[in-house]
Design a protein around this nucleic acid. Structure first.
Ligand SMILES: [Mn+2]
Ligand SMILES: [Mn+2]
Ligand SMILES: [Mn+2]
Ligand SMILES: [Mn+2]
Lengths: 217, 217
DNA sequence: AAATAAATTTAGGCAAATCTAAAAATAGTT
DNA sequence: AACTATTTTTAGATTTGCCTAAATTTATTT
């Protein structure tokens, strides 16, 4: 499998979370910053190799073997992210691009030993689940803060947007994974929230709140 | 710089250690397991980018900037090898191929943090020196055991051949880096050696002895 | 100094991954 | 239902890295 094929498979996997019926050519092109015609070419190739099922004009979805491939790439990506943050001391907003390269290193033995070295982590630095060697992962029950009821204690367990900009904003506000959040008030006008985060009062715009995953307790 | 270009530059660097006047097209083709005509194509490209100086039929040598590039690739290769052995628990005969891929990961910050994490090692698991961020490395004074005088105490500090086969042979004989070696006798007939390694008697063929780097003391 | 052998380069081609421009299919809108 | 806009695919090129076969240059023998 080439690096390019792997990148396509992974993008289709991620986009399929939102569009389970079929991922569009344009959506893939947008994510990979390439042209729709290039995507069409690649989809034919991926279909030939039986990693996606594809019918002209109808979008694609991963086959069982494509799904398995995708999960292994995601597994590698997230394990490397844990390594970069936990062992090398990178900040959580610095690791994505590097992991984007590291995820393509082939060796099975390497990933298995890395997993062991890291203590078999179940989530990456952004709160995303890490598939195990079989592709299984626990999908933690989680909701976005913007839709959570008031006056309940939540724990901040993941980000929806993991762009450097957003992560740096959270750093600046000292909002870190694991923080306790209680919504005190939701403004009718702009849906912004007044929250208590680790006992400090903060105001969060709707844009921010809908990118924070929380769970009860 | 593409992965292919990096592989060529690194091979030219290694071959130049043995042929400082100029590396031949065939030597490169042999090492990279590719055809001479492909090498010629690439040499033109590398010359255009000023990483090698190349004249038809006369072989190539690295330019100053090519040499610097080569050292950085070697640096990455050897640092990753240290990581794989010291942190992940790979054996010294298992790491070369994996490092062959890892050496192409781009991030400067990654290598700098990895170097720090590993405690700024100066040699890799095979005893080869690791260039620092500026490309400087200490070249330890060393000789091959096959040419060393009798009855002196040497320390085993590196291998000339670092193929898995040779390394596994050394493992089997329990000859590890750092071992003390004293030559007791050299056979006239086949130049084989009778040696004392960590106080155990062993017989080494010339083929073995000429692939062991040692230093006095 | 020829003749032969070996090394190297050139010529022409191929596959992967991309692009632009044009054509075709689908979706949305009067 | 017909028209328009959007999405997607096709056609034709380009670049990179590689190949085979043939030509050329350099090295080695007679
Ligand atoms: Mn990637
Ligand atoms: Mn992540
Ligand atoms: Mn390599
Ligand atoms: Mn090594």
């Amino acid at each position: 499998m080439t690096i390019s094929e792997e990148n396509y498979i992974k993008v289709i996997y991620h986009l399929a979370q939102v569009s389970p019926k079929g991922v569009s050519t344009n959506a893939i092109a947008g994510t990979l910053d390439t042209k729709a015609s290039s995507v069409t070419d690649m989809l034919k190739k991926l279909a030939d190799k039986n990693w996606v099922s594809y019918q002209k004009y109808q979008g694609v979805s991963l086959t069982e073997s494509g799904l398995q491939k995708a999960k292994m790439i995601v597994r590698k990506h997230r394990l490397w992210e844990v390594f970069l943050v936990e062992k090398l001391g990178f900040a959580w907003d610095e690791v994505h691009e590097i992991a984007e390269e590291l995820e393509h290193i082939q060796s099975e033995a390497l990933i298995s030993k890395l997993d062991d070295f890291l203590g078999f982590p179940t989530v990456d630095p952004h709160g995303d689940p890490i598939p195990n060697a079989k592709g299984e992962m626990v999908k933690e029950e989680r909701i976005v803060l913007s839709e959570a009821p008031l006056h309940q204690a939540y724990r901040f367990i993941g980000v929806k947007d993991s762009s450097a900009g957003f992560l740096q904003y959270l750093d600046k506000q000292q909002i870190a994974l694991g923080a306790t959040i209680i919504i005190q008030e939701r403004e009718d006008f702009d849906a912004s929230l007044s929250v208590l985060i680790n006992d400090k009062v903060l105001s969060l715009s709707q844009k921010i709140a809908e990118n924070l995953f929380v769970k009860q307790g």
